[in-house]
């Protein structure tokens, strides 16, 4: 019972913390670029404002266009509720192992891309086409990186993997370094950050995610934006808790959960800094350079897997 309560409150915390992470990265980026920047809690205000606005639909929009934001939002929220954020061993984590989690991402993306194609403008189709291209190259790299961990622990269950890695004495697996690098590259591509996509632009030559949601307004737009923020947080949590598992609560005691909260906050704080610094120092890449970037991620995860098989068995 306490497990389920904790699982629900963790999922809620996840929902509510997502805008903060996005706001934190944005604020940092502005500081690094010598701008004043909105405060980190600005995304909450934006969401609240959007929820209060009136919906304007395109005349050519079909029901898919109106269903998609709810699907994207709820699937991403479900994905958030199965990832161990504060503690491991929650009952929700048995619903989905890491392959199902990647399946959730794919399902949300499927509806996002359909929504992009729905109105019948060139922008939407362009965004959907690019998104599906990028993700179809990123997904194998991500899975291979995850498999490296899964094979080390002989489990694809996220809770088991994290608990196993957190309890054993710290040791350096060479394969993990490659897997972590590959996963970081994929995370940047999948969450639409520089150098793959720029969340701050509406220039047609460069945008992917923004092109798909161009026709959205009001609460629909808010749900889409919120889902994107959750996805950013989700990848951050995955990177943080899989590769730096220490600090995650192993029991349901208040002390363990409290330490877990503190640990994940600290980890995300630093991940945000790393992301902001890389985004500031890199330029957006041409679309047709992206496959090279993603094949680098794939090769890295492949090296990780092979070094696991050769060195660590």
């Amino acid at each position: 019972m306490i497990g389920w309560l904790l699982a629900i409150s963790q999922a809620l915390l996840f929902l509510l913390a997502a805008p903060l992470m996005a706001g934190w990265v944005k604020w940092l980026k502005c500081r690094l670029q010598n701008r004043k920047g909105p405060p980190p809690w600005q995304p909450y205000r934006d969401l609240a404002k959007l929820f209060g606005k009136e919906v304007v639909l395109a005349e050519t929009a079909s029901p898919v266009f109106r269903v998609a934001p709810y699907m994207v939002f709820s699937v991403t929220a479900l994905a958030g509720s199965v990832v161990p954020l504060l503690t491991v061993g929650l009952p929700t984590s048995a619903i989905a192992d890491v392959i199902v989690l990647i399946g959730f991402f794919a399902l949300a993306r499927f509806f996002l891309a359909l929504a992009g194609m729905d109105v019948g403008t060139a922008f939407g189709g362009m965004g959907s086409s690019r998104e599906m291209t990028i993700s179809s190259l990123a997904e194998p790299a991500l899975l291979l990186a995850v498999f490296t961990l899964a094979m080390t622990v002989a489990s694809t269950n996220l809770s088991t993997v994290i608990a196993h890695l957190a309890t054993e004495p710290p040791q350096l697996y060479p394969s993990f370094i490659f897997a972590a690098l590959a996963m970081a590259l994929v995370a940047v591509a999948e969450t639409g950050r520089v150098p793959i996509d720029n969340p701050a632009t509406h220039l047609e030559l460069t945008m992917t995610h923004e092109a798909m949601i161009l026709e959205y307004s009001s609460r629909h737009l808010a749900l889409m934006e919120w889902a994107a923020m959750m996805k950013l947080l989700l990848y951050g949590v995955l990177l943080a808790n899989l590769f730096i598992p220490w600090g995650v609560g192993l029991t349901f005691t208040p002390a363990a959960v409290g330490w877990g909260l503190l640990a994940i906050t600290a980890k995300l704080f630093f991940l945000g800094i790393i992301l902001a610094v890389t985004e500031t120092s890199l330029a957006k890449m041409r679309l047709f350079r992206v496959p090279q970037y993603l094949s680098l991620a794939f090769i890295l995860s492949l090296i990780g897997l092979l070094s696991h098989v050769i060195l660590e068995r």
């Binding site: 050519t60 079909s62 898919v64 990647i102 794919a106 993306r109 499927f110 891309a113 359909l114 992009g116 194609m117 729905d118 109105v119 019948g120 189709g125 959907s128 086409s129 599906m132 291209t133 993700s135 179809s136 190259l137 990123a138 997904e139 194998p140 899975l143 291979l144 498999f147 794939f298 492949l302």
Partner: peptide, 24 residues
Amino acid sequence: AVLALTGALAAACFVKVYGIAFLG
């Protein structure tokens, strides 16, 4: 990994099919 790539490409293909045939 090949299976993962196949699944992702299939999703791309069916976004295309559904988006072109039924939407727009």
